Amino acid sequence: MNILRSTMQAFRRIQVQGLLVAIVVLGVIMSFASDSFLTSTNLINILYSSTILAVVAIGQTFVILVGGIDLSVGSMIALSSVLSVGLVVIGGLPVGLSIVLTLLVGVAFGVAHGLAVTKLNMPPLIVTLASLSLASGLAYVYSGGKNIIPVPEFFRAIANAQMFGGKLPVFIPFAIIIAVISYFVLAKTSFGRMIYAVGGNKTAARLAGIPANRIIIIAFVISSLSAVIGGLMMTVRLQSGSPIIGVGMELTVIAAAVIGGTSLFGGQGNVVGTLLGVILLTMASNAIVLLAIPPNYDKVFTGLVIALAAGLDIYRQRKDTRSMTRLTKRSTTNSVLSDKQTVNKQGA
């Protein structure tokens, strides 16, 4: 088991190093292909563009780690956008209360997802696909299919907030803080260890006394909350409550997590890998813009990356299974030989 665990850890390190190499290579190529790439303005723009995707992808990582998936995050972004603005503009509520209520809607969706998966044994794919349609429909119904404006003054103030002499948008350190907290939770806390245990083997986790169902529900809540926070950030950035922002973003979010080493089978992955996946995808989108390539090629690139990452994940899973089988057989053989030697000694 120790050999298998060491092998898996080594594979994940190699995968992270591979992502770093890919990011560096793409950066070098773009530095020659475009004079604008290495400018401070463009590099900050890449980081700024990564923030929303990073926040939502981190939440998605929690769900995939427990063996689930959340396809509703794009629609949750749209729903949170129209609610956060609409509750102020249409409902006349204070902006603070509108944000709290929007966050509670995200919690409600997350709890519903978790309960449907754990209590009704529904596949996460089907549950969140239904929520994708539901949240998108609610966003259109509430907004009438139109952008809701103007955004509250608080949102405009955040949009204009800068750090370090007006050179760094406040979203960048905000996303870094979320990433650091998420890394600490997964890597250093008992809750994080339970996340990996449930994703690795749900039955074994239950036998070990881990409340697997509760962990799965919390993971879905984290994902929905992350999507809502991403929706609030996108609303601030676009300065309107829109029923279409974030729609389709779920594929990019899943791609970022998977190419970062988060296994679709659960139990493997980390925040660092997800962030590297986010940066790689954002750099690719930036390259497409700088090189004046038709924007639909961005989707082609994302699709190819998802297919490649999924193929590598399946290969890794099969390799781990074969290694486990060989180790089990070797352990059994050694045990049998040991028993025979004991019997022979007693007979002598």
Score class of each variant (00 low, 15 high):
I3L: 10
T7P: 00
M8I: 15
R13K: 13
V16N: 04
L19E: 01
I23C: 08
I23K: 02
V28W: 03
I29H: 02
F32Y: 08
F32A: 11
S34R: 02
S34W: 00
D35H: 03
L38P: 02
L43Q: 05
L53G: 00
V56A: 00
A57I: 01
I64Y: 01
V66R: 02
G67H: 03
G67R: 04
G68C: 05
D70E: 12
D70C: 02
I77T: 01
L79F: 15
L79Q: 06
L79V: 10
S80Y: 03
S81M: 09
V82C: 08
V88F: 05
V89N: 10
I90Y: 15
P94A: 07
G96N: 12
L97F: 11
L97E: 05
S98R: 07
V100R: 02
V100W: 09
G114L: 03
T118I: 09
N121Y: 10
L129F: 14
S131E: 12
S133G: 13
S133M: 12
A135F: 06
S136W: 02
G137W: 00
L138A: 13
V141W: 06
Y142T: 10
S143V: 10
G144H: 10
G144P: 06
G145K: 05
G145F: 09
N147Y: 08
N147Q: 12
V151K: 04
E153D: 12
F154L: 15
F155R: 00
N160S: 14
N160Q: 11
N160I: 05
Q162T: 14
Q162D: 12
M163D: 05
G165E: 09
G165W: 06
P169S: 04
V170Y: 03
F171M: 14
I178F: 10
I178C: 08
I181A: 11
S182E: 09
F184R: 04
T189D: 07
T189E: 08
R193M: 12
Y196Q: 06
A197S: 14
G200C: 07
A204Y: 01
A204F: 03
A205V: 00
L207Y: 14
L207H: 12
P211K: 10
A212E: 04
I215C: 02
I217Y: 02
I218V: 15
F220P: 00
S223I: 00
L225I: 15
L225D: 03
Q239E: 09
Q239I: 11
G241R: 06
S242H: 05
G246S: 06
G248R: 06
I254C: 04
A257D: 07
A257E: 03
A257S: 13
V258Y: 07
G261S: 09
S263H: 05
Q268R: 14
Q268W: 02
G269I: 00
V272R: 10
T274C: 13
T274M: 06
L276Y: 07
V278Q: 04
L281M: 13
M283S: 03
M283N: 06
S285Q: 09
A287G: 11
I288R: 00
L290I: 02
L291G: 07
A292C: 01
I293K: 00
P294Y: 14
P295T: 11
N296L: 14
G303V: 11
I306L: 15
A309H: 09
G311C: 07
L312E: 03
R316P: 00
K319G: 14
D320E: 14
R322M: 08
R326G: 01
T328M: 13
S331M: 09
V336E: 12
V336C: 02
S338W: 00
Q341R: 13
